[in-house]
């Protein structure tokens, strides 16, 4: 279950709403393989208590994930990742991250960073996160 494989957190100071943060957190967990096709998501109530938000907020996040085709509710038994869910989650999150990287590069160029400096900075970021993340995540392809 998600509680054990993913440390999902909600930060109310971020500009995106708590429900969007939950959607992104679950998409990330699916995209990197921590949550696979056919696996069950926590109950609305369970996840609400874990991340300390109103259960309505989790229910909204699950409805949005269902609308994306990433999860499906099976009556009575819970919410599960769909067969297509992994591919959709990867596409959604990789697309979003590419946009963020593009913005960061444009910001760097606007500030006067050279191509070499940007490359160096990206390498430095990779090295920093490599040190912070000592244990590789399960199923983290590419």
């Amino acid at each position: 279950m998600l509680e054990h494989t993913v440390r999902l957190r909600v930060d109310p100071t971020r500009p995106s709403s708590p429900s969007v943060q939950i959607v992104e957190g679950i998409l990330d967990a699916i995209a990197r393989g921590a949550l696979g096709a056919g696996e069950q998501l926590p109950t609305v109530r369970g996840l609400a208590e874990q991340v300390v938000v109103n259960p309505n907020t989790v229910a909204k996040a699950y409805r949005d994930l269902e609308a994306l085709g990433v999860v499906e509710g099976r009556h009575g038994s819970g919410v599960f990742v769909t067969a297509a869910g992994v591919e959709i989650a990867r596409r959604e999150r990789r697309g979003a991250v590419k946009v963020e990287l593009q913005r960061a590069v444009e910001a760097a160029q606007a500030t006067g960073f050279t191509r070499e400096e940007i490359t160096t900075e990206v390498e430095r970021c990779l090295a920093a996160t490599g040190r912070a993340r000592s244990t590789p995540r399960q199923g983290g392809r590419s």
Binding site: V10, P12, T13, S17, P18, V44, R45, A48, E49, V52, V53, N54, P55, N56, T57
Partner: peptide, 27 residues
């Protein structure tokens, strides 16, 4: 409070001055 909201459907009006709480509890 989050636990109580998970027990059953409840309607809540809560006054606060903390945005963190407003974001966590408020629709």
């Amino acid at each position: 409070l989050v636990g109580a909201l998970g027990e059953r459907r409840r309607t809540v009006l809560v006054s606060t001055h903390e945005l963190d709480l407003a974001a966590r509890l408020g629709d």
